[in-house]
Design a binder for these strands. Structure first.
Length: 169
DNA sequence: GCTCTGATTGTTGAT
DNA sequence: ATCAACAATCAGAGC
């Protein structure tokens, strides 16, 4: 049910607060973390094949296909940081597999995680929101550096050097 | 053998 | 204000 709605439900908190990473009660300092720079993500950057035919409309979602190892275009380009839900998903997946070793499909885990996420309280989610906020701040910084390099020398082609050390404290 | 799919929510750029 | 795309994960399916 909640699949087609998606945007409509979004979550009682998300935008309700101030489009910040943290739903409600978001501390001002956390909001300050998100500089919301111009990033540069936009779907156009993605491979045409992925960008196109991504129109589920009333159907499901988009299913992103990740392009896997087809990232030759943006090897040094920082990728979008996982959201709070994704951090929770990592932790939830481990616990879920321990209790359900027979279940290996991420589809089932994703569903279970989504249901669990909805039942969780703000206090339980806030820790993941906090992580996501920090990571996005780092991503913003990395993106700014990436753009700077692009403007300076276009394609540096040096994905692993300074950007890596910066991202990973 | 390699690539894509599916399923979830959050976030954000774009329209 | 709304939409669309993308972020991680990983076994399974398809080519």
């Amino acid at each position: 049910m909640a699949k087609n709605a998606k945007k409509s439900q979004v979550s009682p908190s998300s935008r309700a607060s101030a489009s910040a990473t943290v739903p409600k009660r978001a501390s001002d300092d956390q909001m300050a973390l998100r500089t919301k720079s111009s990033e540069g993500m936009k779907r156009s950057a993605r491979p045409s094949k992925v960008s196109v035919e991504r129109r589920p409309k009333s159907a499901k979602k988009t299913k992103t296909k990740h392009k896997k190892k087809n990232d030759k275009s943006d090897t040094n380009k920082p990728k979008k940081p996982p959201t709070a839900f994704f951090y929770f998903l990592e932790d939830f997946r481990k616990d879920f597999q321990e209790q359900n070793p027979n279940v290996k499909s991420m589809r089932d885990i994703g569903k279970a995680c989504g249901e669990k996420w909805k039942t969780m309280t703000y206090e339980e989610k806030v820790q993941y929101y906090d992580i996501a906020t920090v990571k996005r701040a780092e991503f913003d910084k990395a993106m700014a550096d990436y753009i700077k390099k692009m403007e300076s020398g276009e394609n540096i082609e040096s994905e692993d050097s300074d950007s890596d050390s910066e991202l990973d404290e």
